[in-house]
């Protein structure tokens, strides 16, 4: 079984995001970039399926600028067999990402695609769903447990009401939630081994993907600072205040 894993590079989750003074974006110069945490979970799940003997080939893929190579090497060091780098200097939106991944699916013919449920930079939570629709295959999003038997996958999903377990036919798209697993630490010798693993670079324009980017960003701004609160002496005063502010 072959698994394709989406592995996006984002600003590290512990970095305090700063908006550029001219509002044209967020500051990325000198900022630590790392793998989208949901994608690390996706890769970990794929590696565990390989270790269980269910999968044989784990391919990590990213869509990003030329300097994403080091990022993909991290995925290879963590254990992926191969990496595919779709090179573009432009930031792309979910529909374009899904169309691009579909091209990779056509090329690689995976039995399973595992993506993070969302990336922590734009929090879109759309690519997995769009990809399943374009591919015309089942999807199981927000997975917190995955069991593969034969050509089906039993997936426990985290939904608003609690947990929901569904069974889907493979090939399919699974998107990961936080509780699916805890990704491993890389090992130093594997950093060296990753250097000789195959990493294929494909220019985005060579894939013939029609852009789905339809959103225009007009400006970035930091959220307004929380204003100072007031102390109330009892519930009655609280209720009165909420009423005068028209909140209840």
């Amino acid at each position: 079984m072959k698994i394709l894993v989406g592995y996006k590079r984002v600003v590290d989750y512990n970095v305090r995001i700063q908006v550029k003074p001219d509002g044209s974006g967020v500051v990325t110069e000198g900022v630590k970039l790392s793998a989208n945490p949901f994608d690390e979970i996706a890769l970990e799940e794929a590696l565990r399926l390989r270790e269980k003997g269910i999968a044989t080939d784990v391919v990590v893929a990213t869509i990003g600028p030329a300097d994403c190579q080091a990022h993909l090497r991290n995925g290879l060091a963590m254990g992926a067999n191969r990496a595919i780098h779709v090179v573009t200097s432009e930031a792309i939106q979910p529909l374009t990402a899904a169309r691009t991944l579909l091209k990779l699916i056509e090329k690689e013919q995976p039995d399973l695609v595992i993506l993070g449920k969302q990336a922590i930079d734009d929090d879109c939570n759309q690519t997995g769903q769009m990809l399943a629709a374009l591919w015309n295959r089942p999807q199981a999003t927000f997975a917190s447990k995955v069991e593969i038997s034969g050509s089906t996958a039993k997936v426990t999903r985290e939904v608003d009401a609690g947990l929901e377990t569904i069974e889907i036919d493979l090939p399919a798209v699974i998107t990961t939630d936080l509780r699916l697993n805890e990704p491993r630490f890389t090992k130093l010798p594997d950093i060296m081994k990753a250097k000789s693993k195959p990493l294929e670079s494909i220019p985005l324009e060579s894939l013939g993907v029609e852009s789905g980017d339809s959103l225009k960003t007009t400006a970035y701004a930091a959220p307004p600072k929380r204003s100072k609160g007031v102390m109330v002496k009892d519930v009655a005063e609280l209720v009165a205040l909420l009423k005068t502010k028209g909140l209840v």
Binding site: A70, A77, F185, L188, I191, M192, A194, K195
Partner: peptide
């Protein structure tokens, strides 16, 4: 000779993470 800025950086990132 087997090393590069990339392997140095990956080793440092791993240390930082652990």
């Amino acid at each position: 000779a087997e090393h590069s800025r990339e392997t140095f950086g990956a080793a440092l990132s791993l240390a930082q993470q652990i």
